Amino acid sequence: MQTYQGKIYDADTHFYEVEDAFSRYLPEKFKKDWGFTSRVTPEGNRCMYVGDRKVEISEGYTSAEGLVPPPGKLHEWLRAMKDGKDNVEMRVQPTPDMFNRDARLKKMDEFGVEACTMYVGEMVACISYLSEPVAANAVLHAYNRWMLDDWGFSYKERIYSTPIVTLDDLDSAVAEAKWLVANGVRVILMPMGPFGGRAPADPYFDPYWAILNEAGVRVTFHVSEAIYMKDHMAVWGEPVQQSRQRQTAFVWMHGYGERPVVETLSSFIFYNFFERFPNVKLCSAENGAEWVPSMLVKMDKCRGMSKNGYWPCGQLKSRPSQIFKENVFVVAYPEDDLAQIVAQTGSADYLLMGSDYPHAEGVPEPKDFAREACEPLSAVDTQKIMYDNGRRFIPARA
């Protein structure tokens, strides 16, 4: 089995928020209806609330005592449960590196990780509840200020945290982008899907993208509830914003599956986004990678079908598949068949590894990704996925 000894860029890691992460900078007038709080339900489960609205999917992730799922142990836990070991403990005490950037650097040194993309914690479950633009921008700016305090946006050129921006209000997005760039941001997290009936690459939003393009800021789309799908789910009689226990396979497949990320990324390409903003690169995180081959084939086919049709931002100069490979990066799951994906697309240059640390769903240590996912690949392609592509996505600065 392949034992990877090279450098590592971990493209999917997370922190956990401290108690005042959501309230430290939130203006008082928003706290009652839009403040984020963690409460213990009458059933004894810890759950996030936005105002008085319960974030159903967050219930039970952490215990009432603040214990968290053990990093990288989900498969081990599932195997134990399958074998009838009903006394398996799926909660552990959180460690300092889950909350503190200097402690995280030590953990990264232990893991052999040079640098990482750092995603949000409980916030990822709450974004879809921010349905009112003025309040949403106030909440997100307050959260981003906390993130700057505790993690920085480019800490020692090793931890690249991902402040959140929404395009629900263009003026607010422009102001936030300017503030983030002034504070050294390298990568931004955005919700998947359209904003106010417009694609994110619609020229209406160009003032926002021009700021990111000038600074070479990257943009990521991490798995979360794609709330723009709620009306479509309703047509099928499928409610959204449900707990994990009540969420159907249909919603997992379409609401949390490939559809939101495929629609979002293909929209950028068909809107000729990279012709206007070549310095902005996009990344999909924790959406897997098995959808990529079919997406590339379908985009190329649809470009041909609509060659003489309407192109809102001008006809593409290259095949959509080539534009994708040059401008989009994808964090694969360790269980993805990477050999098949590389063979079907003809390239490993857009693929990234991600440990999902400290979440349970990932691998115990980042190097384990090479063992689980890259075994059939060449040493060259393994090096690309484990390190080189990550450093192309966010190049190190002196």
Score class of each variant (00 low, 15 high):
Pro293Gln: 03
Met229Ser: 05
Phe250Arg: 12
Gln241Glu: 13
Ile323His: 01
Gln242Glu: 15
His254Cys: 09
Val261Met: 08
Gly309Ala: 13
Thr248Leu: 14
Arg246Cys: 14
Pro334Gly: 07
Lys298Arg: 14
Val240Cys: 14
Tyr271Glu: 11
Pro293Arg: 05
His254Leu: 11
Pro312Phe: 08
Gly304Asn: 14
Gly288Ser: 03
Asn287Met: 04
Gly304Phe: 15
Tyr333Asp: 10
Glu258Arg: 06
Val223Leu: 15
Arg303Asp: 08
Phe250Leu: 13
Pro334Ala: 13
Glu275Leu: 02
Asp336Gly: 04
Asn327Gln: 03
Ala339Lys: 11
Ile341Ala: 13
Pro312Thr: 02
Val261Trp: 07
Ala285Asp: 07
Gln247Leu: 12
Ala285Gly: 02
Gln344Asn: 05
Lys307Phe: 15
Ala249Leu: 14
Val331Trp: 03
Val330Ile: 10
Val262Lys: 03
Pro278His: 00
Trp311Ile: 04
Cys302Ser: 11
Lys301Cys: 09
Thr264His: 04
Gln247Asn: 10
Cys283Met: 06
Asp336Ser: 05
Ser321Asp: 01
Asp337Val: 09
Asn287Gln: 04
Gln315Tyr: 12
Ser267Lys: 00
Glu238Phe: 12
Trp236Pro: 00
Ser318Glu: 12
His254Met: 09
Gln242Cys: 13
Tyr310Gly: 00
Gly314Val: 05
Glu258Lys: 07
Gln322Pro: 00
Lys301Leu: 13
Glu263Cys: 01
Glu238Arg: 14
Tyr256Ser: 05
Ala234Tyr: 10
Lys307Pro: 00
Met295Pro: 02
Leu296Met: 10
Gly309Arg: 15
Lys281Met: 05
Lys325Glu: 10
Glu238Leu: 15
Gly304Ala: 13
Arg244Thr: 13
Pro260Trp: 06
Val297Gln: 08
Glu238Ile: 14
Glu258Leu: 06
Asn287Trp: 05
Val261Asn: 02
Ile323Met: 00
Gln245Val: 14
Glu335Arg: 06
Gln322Lys: 11
Phe273Glu: 00
Met253Ile: 00
Pro239Arg: 14
Lys230Met: 15
Arg319Cys: 05
Val235Ser: 14
Met295Arg: 02
Thr264Asn: 08
Asn279Glu: 06
Thr248Val: 11
